[in-house]
Nucleic acid binder design. Structure first.
Lengths: 219, 219
DNA sequence: TAGATTGTTAATCGATTAACAATC
DNA sequence: TAGATTGTTAATCGATTAACAATC
């Protein structure tokens, strides 16, 4: 057990850089300076430069980094050069939100199919995709098995969904359900914990309030 | 600019510990060992112990940690002892998903009101709450101003929403929109970047594929 | 007692920050 | 040239890991 937890902040920042770069490319810009990315991200420019250095592409002194080259380098770094195909389990509000996330397409993620167990939902269309019956998942996906399974079910049914995905031979799971999944050791799970973000905010708030209190004392 | 980015993994793990502890408490358990939490979280037990040590509560050798005490200590650590009141801007699928997140209540987050600008949505009920007209936000919130504003609008309108919140005097923002918000320096923003999680997964996949390739070579 | 579990201290690792060099 | 920007190296900081002590 006890997987090594890789939590590199650099990796998490990359999509935000990419977002800005794609925007700049769209308006016809050719070069970007690290200070500009830093300003956008509200982080120090040295952080940006260190991150970019990891992608291996050089900049031009006094000019900055070539946007096209940087976009490609980041895509390479993240393994986003080839399209990654995914299936979504759970067409609730969170699943629907993910389907509507347009940038995924540019990021190399293609959500090809959507499954749910709710008979009220099966057959309906969300974001231009028909919700399919989870009971039929193995027949539907047999021909063209996606690499990634995205779990947006309730916590109660997430493990069942994971078992189904694993049985189909899907080895990469992006888990938004609020549970730790039990999977074979060769299956890779990326878990999103929404409450983790709230914990971060709460601690910032706590520190802010303490800081203000001590400010008052100093006055 | 250039806020110090606090990204303590410990803070992000705390809600997951809490989740397990609350579950154990519900089934009547009194003590928990660090190895048990580690097993649940799929991390090393030493990490759990170090995290718990930060909360300041001692365990009992050979027994573990008292669940009630640990729950309180974690709540204290995260500043979740008092209820934090919030308003939600944007009743799309992501906003709806957040409203349905039941654990928030236990975590001290109370989403009191929901606003949207879409006339098709205003007046409708989502998750037992009426969607209010964003144009009326200042009158509605005047009496009882929440501390936190949660932004779940499109990227295009998130800045407008943030400006409105700031004008109302709300200084803590939880931003799910895919933009960097410009706010006065005394306003604290916690931004969630969904694509960041996908970047993590993609890098894990990339490494996994490389590893398998090298396995093949070794054979 | 032996074994299970927490507690403590030191070592390691990785990310951030600082300082200064290089050069277009 | 002077200034803007990247490049490089070292220092610092914080999180993880390891090793062993303490004790119920």
């Amino acid at each position: 057990m006890t997987h090594k937890v890789l939590n590199s902040p650099t990796i998490r920042r990359m999509p935000s850089y990419l977002h800005w770069l794609l925007r700049m490319k769209r308006i016809g810009k050719k070069y970007v300076a690290s200070a500009e990315l830093a300003e956008y991200m509200k982080i120090r420019w040295i952080v940006v430069r260190k991150d970019i250095a990891l992608t291996g592409i050089p900049g031009q002194r006094r000019v900055g980094y070539e946007i096209n080259a940087l976009i490609e380098a980041i895509r390479e770094y993240l393994g986003w050069t080839n399209q990654l195909r995914a299936t979504l389990i759970g067409a609730g509000s969170l699943g629907t939100a993910l389907l509507g996330y347009e940038e995924f397409h540019q990021f190399g993620l293609c959500i090809e199919s959507v499954f749910d167990s709710d008979t009220n939902k099966i057959g309906k269309i969300v974001r231009d995709r028909e919700i399919l019956d989870i009971a039929k998942i193995s027949t539907v996906l047999k021909k063209e098995k996606p690499e990634i399974g995205i779990i947006c079910t309730s916590a109660a049914t997430a493990q069942i969904a994971a078992d189904q995905l694993v049985r189909l031979g899907i080895r990469y799971i992006w888990n938004f359900a609020n549970v730790t999944l039990n999977v074979p050791p060769d299956v890779i799970v990326q878990r999103e914990v929404i409450a983790g973000g709230f914990a971060m905010l709460a601690v910032k708030i706590k520190n802010d309030k303490l800081g203000r209190k001590s400010d008052e004392l100093e006055e």
